[in-house]
């Protein structure tokens, strides 16, 4: 099993959600986050006051998947989240040791 963590543009959240659902991913965790990669931030001047916008709003999508579904999920996210501009985000992949369903103690991929 792998955990896939994607940091994407907020306006791409619905598209990504739909793309993952279309390939059969039913569960996901979505968090509103702020941060920056290469995009860094910028400084804004509004009515003479400077506002530093160094952490930009993003959305984090977390999904745990069976190994054989990982590549499909990556492709789905790439297809849905890409605009081609700086700031599109990143995908990170982690190994998952175990998944346990709290309700009935079910374990492994069946618990996903």
């Amino acid at each position: 099993m792998k955990k896939l963590e994607a940091i994407i543009q907020p306006f791409k959240m619905e598209d990504v959600k739909r793309a993952l659902t279309d390939i059969g991913v039913t569960g996901m965790t979505i968090t509103e986050v702020k941060g920056h990669g290469r995009q860094k931030g910028h400084k804004e001047v509004y009515r003479g006051n400077e506002y530093v916008v160094d952490l930009l709003p993003k959305v984090k999508v977390e999904v745990v998947l069976a190994d054989n579904k990982v590549e499909d999920a990556i492709q789905a996210i790439l297809g849905a989240a890409r605009t081609g501009k700086i700031g599109d985000g990143k995908i990170f992949l982690y190994e998952v040791a175990e998944a346990i369903r709290i309700r009935n103690d079910e374990r492994g991929e069946t618990a996903l």
């Binding site: 509103e32 986050v33 702020k34 804004e44 916008v53 930009l56 709003p57």
Partner: peptide, 14 residues
């Protein structure tokens, strides 16, 4: 209106 949403609203305004 979390800080995250506030930043989004501000970006839309700007």
């Amino acid at each position: 209106l979390s800080p995250w949403r506030m930043d989004q609203l501000w970006s839309a305004f700007r």
